[in-house]
Nucleic acid binder design. Structure first.
Length: 467
DNA sequence: AAACAGTGCGCG
DNA sequence: AAAGCGCGCACTGTTT
């Protein structure tokens, strides 16, 4: 793919953005190295204990017999071969083999084998990831003064997003709370300061609405009284919006709406949601178990989920097929028309231009053509804000330091006495100046703020009300 | 010893 | 017709 910034404005964005990102790297984020070392020891002990437990199992005896001195507890390939003997059916299902035809041993596949040995293996993998990639990765890159300087680049991602390395600051754990705690509690504010994270609320959905101009999507992101994820939850689970609780909404958002926007299809959504009902024990607001509720609504099973076999009535698979159809051909039909037009135009020309003035060309499939512009422009909203914010901080001789950036959020280390001023200007840039500078932004942009206690950690951040 | 392909998993 | 977009990093197992 050829990467060319064409408009002058697009060039300037990358130019100034690069300078700001370099400054962010130079500032660095403070690391509690003592806690980091303590956590590394603690996780090491957890790993040792888990390995010992696994090695007491008869399955490990079997494993040893097979591989002798080459037997390795961390080898997914070896595990796959050992388990294949006892659970061959696990890998008979569609999509359970790797690209080279070997049995997959990812968490998703292994979660179907509900024996302690396998579940413990999954846990051990997580512990090893935590120790190697994150805790040790951070320690390795931390300088002698206790500051970490992640790098950020604008010249690599095909979407014109940024990337980060040494270490990657943009994939530090947050979704699994116990993992997040081990790591994020080591990222701390400098003395007398707060770590402040400012997020562009629903950035990609907002920017998507600016591309496709679907009136219903625009309404959803413009009217705080409306809630797309809640509405979709009600459709997916055949209930009223009052019956939707946080967990159910979260499931609809992350296992249907977002995947659909990225080009996923109903069959994979159906499987994932059905799994989530079981694993997360979903229920309605009044306490009714979700499976019981769906049964009452005429849905008693998932269905075969075979791509070439038509979905049968009374299955969740069939229901999700209908939900998907209504989603794209009724609710968001203007969005669908835009997708068709956008892709057809690309096929004719071989390139397209993003709303922020970048050309993207090369051999791309439909999903890439649909997604790249949205993903890139959403990040550029953040980058533009970041540049403005940085410039304001310099001009006003503020002591605030911007220390990181994660696609749609900014992390800053803010002296207590500057907190009010900082939040005020950041909010003004994001919600007022940004939409004023870019007329293609036709929906409100909202900032969300979280802050750590004084001298506290990234893990301890709590929402802050913006006035 | 170094490079490479394949796999898996963390984040938005 | 195919069946989720973008990244970085660690590890296994093989090849150079």
């Amino acid at each position: 793919m050829k990467v060319t910034a064409i408009t002058c404005e697009a060039y300037n964005l990358l130019h100034h953005g690069t300078l700001v990102l370099a400054d962010i790297s130079a500032n660095g984020i403070r690391i509690d190295t003592e806690l980091l070392r303590y956590n590394i020891d603690k996780v090491a002990r957890m790993i040792a204990r888990t390995e010992k437990e696994l090695k007491n199992s008869p399955i490990w005896q079997d494993w040893r017999k097979r591989y002798g001195s080459k037997a390795k507890l961390t080898s997914g390939h070896q595990l796959g071969c050992v388990l294949m003997e006892h659970y061959p059916d696990t890998w008979k299902e569609e999509g359970r083999l790797t690209a080279t035809g070997k049995p997959k041993t990812d968490e998703e596949t292994l979660s179907t084998i509900e024996i302690p040995f396998v579940q413990k293996y999954v846990y051990l993998s997580k512990l090893n990831k935590l120790r190697s990639t994150y805790l040790q990765g951070i320690l390795r890159e931390t300088d002698a003064n206790g500051f970490l300087h992640p790098m950020f680049g604008l010249g690599l991602a095909r979407t014109y997003r940024s990337q980060s390395d040494h270490p990657n600051f943009q994939n530090q754990p947050i979704r699994i709370p116990w993992m997040a705690k081990f790591i994020r509690s080591c990222f701390v504010a400098r003395p007398g300061r707060h770590l402040v994270e400012i997020d562009l609320k629903g950035a990609e959905v907002c920017v998507s609405a600016c591309y496709n101009r679907d009136p219903k999507l625009i309404a959803y992101v413009s009217n705080p009284a409306l809630d797309m994820h809640r509405d979709m939850a009600a459709e997916i689970f055949k209930c009223t919006i009052d019956q939707v609780n946080k967990d159910v909404r979260h499931t609809a958002k992350n296992l249907f709406v977002f995947p659909q926007f990225y080009g996923d299809w109903y069959l994979s959504c159906a499987k994932n949601i059905w799994d989530a009902i079981r694993k997360r024990k979903l229920h309605l607001n009044d306490g009714t178990d979700m499976f019981t509720h769906l049964k009452k609504k005429g849905i008693s099973r998932l269905g075969a989920c075979k791509p070439k076999t038509p979905a049968l009535p009374g299955t969740f698979e069939k229901h999700m097929q209908d939900v998907e159809h209504a989603f794209w051909y009724d609710r968001f039909k203007v969005y669908t028309e835009w997708k068709e037009r956008w892709f057809a135009e690309y096929q004719k020309k071989g390139w397209f231009q993003t709303l922020t003035g970048f050309i993207i060309q090369g051999f791309l499939n439909k999903k890439e053509v649909i997604n790249y512009g949205i993903q890139g422009s959403a990040f550029h909203c953040l980058l533009w804000s970041l540049i403005k914010l940085h410039s304001y901080i310099q001009r006003h001789n503020m002591k605030t330091l911007i220390v990181g950036q994660i696609h749609d959020s900014i992390l800053a280390d803010v002296p207590a006495e500057e907190l009010h001023q900082f939040l005020d200007i950041a909010n003004r840039i994001i919600t007022k100046q940004l939409p004023a500078a870019w007329p293609w932004i036709i929906v409100p942009i909202v900032a969300e703020v979280e802050a750590s206690p004084l001298g506290g950690s990234w893990f301890d951040k709590k929402p802050v009300e913006l006035k």
